[in-house]
Write a protein that binds this DNA or RNA. Structure first.
Length: 184
DNA sequence: TGGATGATCGCA
DNA sequence: GCGATCATCCAG
């Protein structure tokens, strides 16, 4: 089943581990890529100091306060993009950062976008997978689903994998919280 | 281990 | 406006 708003309209800390093992699809004019989600991080709302939603909405973070089941893509460090899915009911902020996938379809396209890197380094990081999948800020605020022109969507997993929780990566505040989830 | 590289946001 | 900060990646 393709995951819809109902799946994402739940607490972020429940949605994040439930995404592990699901399959992410990105279809553009260049073709279709897909991969198995193996690493995610949960970012909560106005009370999470590491979240872009901390302290309330800003122009950048507004989409996190909007309807669930949409994409939130931001530009970071002057050169990278990161892909998130908006969670929680409308009016409450939350998002799940996709940190790693295992490539399934479209590996030639991913290699072409990523350049001269080993296959194991194609999608094992939030910036890398956005580059491999051709995702940038134009892809932010999209509703997850397969439209006539392609799009971004997620196919639910068949079975629940073994999951481990750990600390989030690359943050300065809230780093003690075990909001990173990966397949063990 | 540090340099690249620019959007974002709080404060003035 | 200004500048500190940043949910990263890669070469050396």
């Amino acid at each position: 089943m393709i995951l819809t708003a109902d799946f994402f309209a739940r607490p972020t800390l429940k949605v994040a581990p439930d995404l592990l093992g699901a399959t992410l699809f990105v279809q553009t004019d260049a073709g279709r890529c897909s991969g198995r989600i193996v690493e995610v991080e949960a970012y909560l709302g106005a009370e999470d100091p590491a979240s872009h939603a901390f302290g309330g909405p800003t122009p950048r973070s507004a989409v996190m306060f909007g309807p669930p089941g949409r994409t939130y893509v931001y530009f970071i460090y002057g050169m990278h993009h990161c892909l998130n899915f908006v969670t929680e009911p409308e009016g409450t902020a939350g998002a799940v950062l996709i940190r790693g996938i295992e490539p399934l379809e479209g590996m030639d396209l991913m290699r072409a976008r990523r350049g001269k890197f080993l296959d194991k380094d194609l999608c094992n990081g939030p910036g890398k997978l956005c580059q491999a999948l051709g995702i940038d800020r134009k892809c932010s605020g999209l509703t997850l689903g397969h439209g006539p022109d392609g799009g971004i969507w997620v196919l639910d997993r068949a079975e629940k994998p073994d999951i481990e929780a750990s600390r989030r990566i690359g943050i300065r505040k809230g780093e003690e919280l075990p909001y990173r989830f990966s397949i063990s």
